[in-house]
Computed example of a mutant assay.
Amino acid sequence: MAKVVKFPLPDPEKFGPVRVQKKRSVEPKPPGQLNLFTGAKIVRLHQLSEFEEALMIDNQGDVNEARKLYQKAIDDGDSLADAYCNLGILEWQEGYTTKAIDNFTLSLKNDPRHFEAHYNLANLYGEIGNFPLAKVHYEVSIEIEPSFPNSYFNLGLTLAMNKEFPEAVLVLQRYRQLTSPDNYKQADDLISKLQQAY
């Protein structure tokens, strides 16, 4: 007889998107001869870059204006990976899954180690039921940012959905090590149910 294991529903914030909150600094170039043939730079009269302005408007909740400004930042080459990632979140929240995946992928094209893009792609794939791809992107996000606990919790849920119960328990135990005791109950309940399943 098959045993039915009911998994607890995750807290919504664990599966929610993670927005890039500030412009990433550009890696310093190694010392050596200066490149005399770089393109011209536009000098802005105010302090905010296109991306920073888009982020500010996005945080104020003006989705349409934020979308335009993220696109303008992309067109101007300003923080491409970050702008694509945050634009992907807007598309996802509006229900445009394909556009969201495209933007997250473009973010990764510009920065293959972009933590938020991997994490958001994993969440999106998990939401649509593509657990193998969700697993890959959670694992990559953990490689990039090993101290972010929600990646472990969500990976644990994904492994559970893939019926990889022992692996899910190990990942959830790691989540417990990284999070506060306030978050233990849900992980402990899930661990207990998973251990009963195998």
Rank of each mutant, 00 (worst) to 15 (best):
F51R: 01
F51W: 02
E53V: 01
E53N: 08
A54W: 02
L55W: 01
I57T: 12
I57V: 15
D58M: 04
Q60K: 14
G61N: 03
G61M: 11
D62H: 11
N64A: 13
E65N: 04
E65S: 06
K68R: 12
K68T: 10
K68G: 00
L69N: 02
L69Q: 06
L69E: 03
Y70P: 04
Y70C: 02
Q71A: 07
K72G: 00
K72M: 07
A73K: 05
I74N: 02
I74W: 03
D76W: 01
A83K: 07
A83M: 12
Y84V: 08
N86D: 14
N86L: 09
L87W: 09
L90V: 14
E94F: 06
Y96R: 14
T97D: 13
T98Q: 14
I101D: 03
D102T: 09
D102P: 00
F104V: 06
F104H: 04
T105G: 07
L106T: 05
L106A: 07
N110T: 04
P112K: 11
R113L: 14
H114A: 03
F115T: 05
F115L: 10
E116C: 14
E116Q: 15
H118Q: 02
Y119W: 11
N123C: 13
Y125E: 12
E127S: 13
E127W: 15
I128Q: 09
I128Y: 05
F131L: 08
F131T: 06
L133A: 08
L133M: 13
L133D: 14
A134T: 10
K135M: 14
K135Q: 13
H137G: 00
H137K: 00
Y138G: 01
E139Y: 04
E139N: 03
V140W: 04
V140F: 04
E145R: 12
P146W: 00
S147C: 00
F148W: 10
F148C: 04
F148K: 07
P149A: 12
Y152S: 09
Y152A: 11
G156Y: 08
G156M: 11
T158M: 09
M161C: 12
N162A: 15
N162H: 10
K163D: 15
E164A: 15
P166Q: 11
E167W: 01
